[in-house]
Computed example of a mutant assay.
Amino acid sequence: MSEFTAENFRSRVLDRLDGQSYEPAGDHLLNPEIEDYGEDLDKVRDAAVLIGIVDRGADASILLTQRTAHLRSHAGQIAFPGGKIDAEDDGPIGAALREAHEEVGLESDLVEILGDLGHYYTGSGYRVVPVLATVKPPLILSPNPAEVDEVFEVPLSFLMNPENHQKKSGEFRGKTRYYYAMPFEQRYIWGVTAGILRVLYNRVYA
Rank of each mutant, 00 (worst) to 15 (best):
E88W: 12
L29K: 14
D149N: 03
K175W: 07
Q20I: 14
F9M: 15
P145S: 11
E103M: 06
E112S: 15
Y180D: 00
V204T: 05
P138Q: 14
A95E: 01
G82T: 02
M1E: 10
K167F: 11
I113Q: 07
G91I: 03
L139W: 04
A133T: 01
R187K: 08
K168C: 14
Y37K: 06
V199P: 03
I140R: 09
V44F: 00
E88A: 15
K84M: 08
R56A: 07
A79M: 09
G115T: 01
L110S: 05
A133Q: 03
N202V: 06
F80P: 01
G123A: 15
P130C: 08
A47T: 02
K136H: 12
G76Y: 00
E163Q: 15
I51D: 01
V135D: 09
D89G: 05
L106E: 07
L97W: 00
A95H: 01
A87E: 14
K168Q: 15
E99L: 13
E112H: 13
P183C: 02
D109N: 15
K43S: 10
I196T: 03
D89V: 08
D116W: 13
S21R: 12
S108T: 08
L156W: 04
Y22L: 09
K43Q: 05
R12N: 06
T68C: 06
I140Q: 13
G195C: 09
D46M: 11
D89N: 06
G105Q: 02
L41E: 04
F152A: 01
P138R: 12
E7A: 14
P145W: 02
E39K: 02
A69S: 14
L71V: 04
W190E: 06
H70A: 05
V129P: 03
A60Y: 10
K43N: 06
G91K: 00
T176V: 12
L117A: 09
A58R: 10
S61C: 05
K168W: 07
V135W: 01
Y126Q: 01
A146F: 09
W190K: 03
R177C: 14
I34R: 03
V129Q: 05
I51K: 11
D27V: 04
F172H: 01
L197N: 01
V13A: 10
N161S: 15
D116Y: 08
K84N: 10
I51S: 05
P138D: 14
A58D: 05
T122A: 11
D36P: 09
L64C: 02
E88R: 08
A133R: 07
V128A: 08
R12E: 08
I93R: 00
T134S: 11
S157V: 03
H74S: 13
V44Q: 10
Y201S: 13
W190I: 04
Y178I: 06
R10T: 11
R16L: 02
S124Q: 12
T122L: 10
E33M: 13
R198V: 12
S61R: 01
D89Q: 10
R173A: 15
I140Y: 07
E171I: 11
F184G: 00
P143T: 00
I62K: 02
S157H: 06
T193K: 02
R12A: 14
N161Y: 14
E185Y: 08
R12Y: 04
R72Q: 10
V104E: 04
Y180Q: 04
L64I: 03
I93G: 00
A100H: 08
G83A: 12
V13F: 13
R67W: 07
